[in-house]
Computed example of a mutant assay.
Amino acid sequence: MRKPLVAANWKMNGSREFAERFFTDLNLEGVTSGVVVCPPFPYLSLVAQEAEEKGGFAVGGQDLSQEPSGAFTGEISASMLLDSGARYVIVGHSERRSFYSETSELVAKKFFAAQAAGLIPILCIGETLEEREQGRTLEVVATQMQAVSEVIDTDAWKRAVVAYEPVWAIGTGKTATPEEAQSVHEFIRAQLGQVGDEVQILYGGSVKSANASALFAQADIDGALVGGASLDAKEFAAICRAAV
């Protein structure tokens, strides 16, 4: 039985004051899903301390280097994330792929590096609006997954999370219908083969408390990777409560 998971991606937002206020307001009473908060790198230790003191959620990074250490100015290694209290790390978010030209091959190396260090990667995959209109959604998703499959063994998927994020729905207010999302999630699970039933597959793309329940009711949607709505503690908690 897969346990639902809801992850907050704060992206490049927040401050120390914001983080402290967020956790003062965050009430996870009644939440049965797993919860992950992924803050900007400077606030990882602060959030990890909140997690240790209050419990109820884990901490994740928003990205990592594929390299373990070395002369890579500005980069963050998997071991540094672990040392700061992270348990998860987002890999291959569409903003990294589009704004920073991360290829599927690079994403696969980051996925491998995360697992090698003991982190749980949250692999983001998804198509652009143009690719969707061309009818290439499943092709794009399969290609992005295949790049990772080529550097890991099948069982490694059990120690990972997959997040389907249609690029056209991220930060736009547009959301795939529950049925559209379910169709892609079902395809992703089939691509995972014999371990598919053991892998959490999240949906991301303008998830809010208003649409969360309908999305989570789908058979193959195990939770969400939440962007903008995760900056509001009460809204984020409401999304978490919807994941049962």
Rank of each mutant, 00 (worst) to 15 (best):
M1L: 11
V6C: 13
M12D: 12
M12W: 10
R16T: 14
N27K: 14
L28R: 02
E29P: 00
S33L: 01
S33C: 15
V37K: 01
F41C: 11
P42Q: 12
P42R: 12
A48E: 06
Q49T: 12
E50K: 09
A51I: 03
A51Q: 08
Q62D: 07
S65E: 09
A71E: 09
I76K: 09
S77D: 05
A78K: 09
L82H: 01
D83P: 00
G85L: 06
I90W: 03
S94N: 04
Y100K: 08
F112E: 15
Q115C: 11
I125W: 02
T128E: 08
E130A: 15
Q134H: 08
R136P: 00
V141T: 04
V141S: 02
V141P: 03
T143F: 03
Q144L: 02
V148H: 07
V151P: 09
V151M: 09
D155P: 00
A156M: 13
K158G: 04
A160N: 08
A169R: 03
T172M: 05
T175D: 02
A176E: 01
T177R: 01
V184R: 05
E186T: 15
G193H: 11
V195W: 12
V195S: 13
G204C: 01
A210R: 08
A214C: 00
F216H: 07
A219R: 13
I221R: 04
G223Y: 08
G228Y: 06
D232K: 10
K234F: 04
A243R: 02
